[in-house]
Amino acid sequence: MIRFLWRRLVWFAITLFVVMSVSFFLMRAVKGGPFDTERALEPAIEANIKARYHLDWPMWKQFAQYVGPLNLDRHRAEFLGGDGRDTFGGVLAGDFGPSFRYRDFTVNDIIAQSLPISALLGLVSMMWALALGISTGIASALRRGSGLDLALRLAATGGIALPNFVIASFLIVLFVFLVPLFPVAGWGSIRHMLLPGFCLGLVYAAYISRLTRTGMLEILSQDHIRTAHAKGLAPRTVVMRHALKGGLLPVVSYLGPATAGILTGSLVIERIFFIPGTGSHFINSATNRDYTLAMGVTILYTVLVYAMNTIVDLSYTLLDPRIDLEQS
């Protein structure tokens, strides 16, 4: 276990370093900085701005400064965060530097504001996905070959095939305008979360439904289930207590990719429903050429996805002791 975690950590460091250096050098390789405007700035002002963001340094020094944790600035220049605290330290110290566009904010401020929103949205959609996916999966496994099974499987294929923004647009027309159940957009109350969460989670619900069905079918044909039936347990107990535990294993291993997918899928959903989450900020930063913000979000999501996958792998061994982490 310790060895597994240790190895994961080493690979994590390598991955992070690759992402960081590739995006950093690509960013700096681009001619013309983010401060180029239509109007040529006065040289003194331009030099000042460049000096503020260390753009006048040699490349390696900029990179070292960005990665941290040493402050290479002789003047110990510090950027003030939104709360007035001085923030400096480079990525290793959890500091992504100042935003290029939102002049008064650091990237950390923006992430701190928006990440809870995205996380909540992700949580809601994950709950939708699990609730819908597992229940339909069990239902179609228990009624294998029936019309219900067929309908659910078809729905699952449809859910996988349709892009979430298409589903979202249908649902908006349906549940916002024709039958006004939900608010159009925005964020704040639980009613704001249900529709976007559903749209975001639907694809994963479809996958989870498929996985649950396959897993349940496999378990239900095994000897210990027959024994459970034979000793007179109620069908509900057999399913809930004996079959479900084994049948959900494939679902658990899918949770890692699902989380990653929900995180990235929220880019679009946040945009459709005008939710001020990290995804919206990322898209804006990409179109506004706010490089530090874009890089910060990219690195943050790399960390999140990696951590999620590791946790899922760990929980997998807890559920199925036969799996050896050292092998993976």
């Binding site: 990653a260 990409a286 990219t298 996805v305």
Partner: peptide, 23 residues
Amino acid sequence: VDILYSIPFIFVVIFLITLIGDR
């Protein structure tokens, strides 16, 4: 391949496309 797998590509791609857009 594992390293590349664990990178959230959509972010990197969007980032790349913006950068390329500048050039």
